[in-house]
Amino acid sequence: MKPWLTVVIPVHDGERWLGETFDSLVAQSSSGIEYLVVDSSPGDGTARLSSSYSDRLDLHILRRPDLGHWRAKTNFGFAQARAEHVAMLHQDDIWLPGRAAHLKAWLADTPQAAMHLHPSQVIDASGRAIGIWRSPLPSGNAPLEPGLLLRKLMVQNFIAVPAPVIRRDAFMAVGGIRDDLWYTGDWDLYLKIARHGDTVYHADVLTGFRVHGQSMTVSGSRDAADFEAQMRIVLAAHADFLPAAARAGILRKAEASIRVNTGLAAASRGSASALLRTFLAILSLGPHLPSFLHDTRLIDRVLPRLRAGLIG
């Protein structure tokens, strides 16, 4: 039977957390989902671990050592997908109980939506829940107001990677994930999808997004110039699609968000002065500060990292 959902899991030496990821999928007790594990590992440990779940999941292991990063592996996996809807799941993230049932109901109710979103629980390296990452969007079962997602998302990426479910034809139509955006490839994708079709935002917290010291975001942000450039590339690519009347205000908050993100990255590397610069960047917004905090979900993003010891 044709699956109703394809989940692409890009992996590379994923043995540390991948078992927990698969366990969360087995616990869904839902049929009709295919899982494509796109494995670039040099050894066979990840493939062996994945294979041990093939009797409980419709799981297919695609060995692709030539695909060196998550963007290429995800694009490849989505191109192979048999379902009309696709989702990403990284090797250190999890699904929370009941997610499959919720997704199936949403897709049956609003199959034409280009993307469905929901909040994510933030978990630490041990799997402990340390926060909730929500979006500054109204929740419900109807598509968002046209243009709202684009306007909010331009200020800051507030979508955790395991949360979206995307119509496969929409993903292919917008060109998938850019190879050159190691940090902001998902953000760029969501902005493209926001312009392509409707999005529905649901209030249910259904995935676990793991923050830890070995994550690509933490390790990659050590190159401060490249880290900042990744965000500016996306901002430049989409700024012209903003409504003219609102563009200046949105871009002002987006610039402040970049300064905050780079400051927090520096603080995570032990720079005490970076925290002061971050605080001053926030204060510079003046009357725009409340909407900035709402749109960036700054508290949702920072508190879990403080609890996990990744800042300070």
Rank of each mutant, 00 (worst) to 15 (best):
M1A: 15
P3Q: 10
V7G: 05
V7H: 04
V7N: 04
V8Q: 04
D13H: 11
E15L: 12
L18S: 11
L18N: 06
E20C: 08
D23T: 07
A27D: 13
A27F: 05
Q28W: 04
G32T: 10
I33K: 06
E34N: 13
Y35T: 13
D39V: 12
G45H: 10
T46N: 07
A47H: 01
R48A: 13
S50G: 12
Y53T: 06
D55M: 05
L57C: 07
D58M: 10
H60T: 15
I61Q: 05
G68T: 14
A81P: 10
A81W: 02
A83D: 06
A83C: 07
E84C: 11
V86I: 15
V86S: 01
Q91R: 04
D92G: 01
D93T: 04
L96R: 11
R99L: 14
R99I: 09
L103I: 14
A105H: 08
W106F: 08
A108P: 04
L117A: 05
S120Q: 05
V122H: 07
D124L: 06
S126L: 12
R128W: 01
I132K: 11
W133V: 05
R134V: 09
L137P: 01
G140N: 05
G140I: 12
L148D: 01
L148F: 01
R151P: 00
L153M: 11
V155L: 02
N157Q: 08
F158V: 13
F158D: 06
F158R: 00
I159W: 00
M172T: 13
A173G: 08
A173N: 10
V174Y: 00
T184W: 00
G185R: 06
W187F: 07
W187L: 11
Y190R: 11
L191M: 04
R195Y: 00
R195I: 09
H196S: 05
G197C: 08
A203T: 13
V205I: 15
G208D: 05
S215N: 12
A225T: 11
D226R: 12
Q230N: 10
R232A: 04
V234K: 00
A237H: 02
F241L: 10
L242E: 03
L242D: 03
I250G: 05
L251S: 05
A254F: 01
I258V: 15
R259L: 14
G263W: 00
G263L: 01
G263I: 09
L264W: 02
A266P: 03
A266G: 08
A267Y: 00
S268D: 04
A274Q: 01
T278C: 14
T278V: 09
T278A: 09
T278E: 03
A281T: 08
I282E: 07
I282D: 02
S284F: 03
P287Q: 09
H288R: 13
P290S: 11
F292S: 06
F292A: 10
L293E: 06
D295H: 03
L303E: 11
P304K: 07
I311M: 07
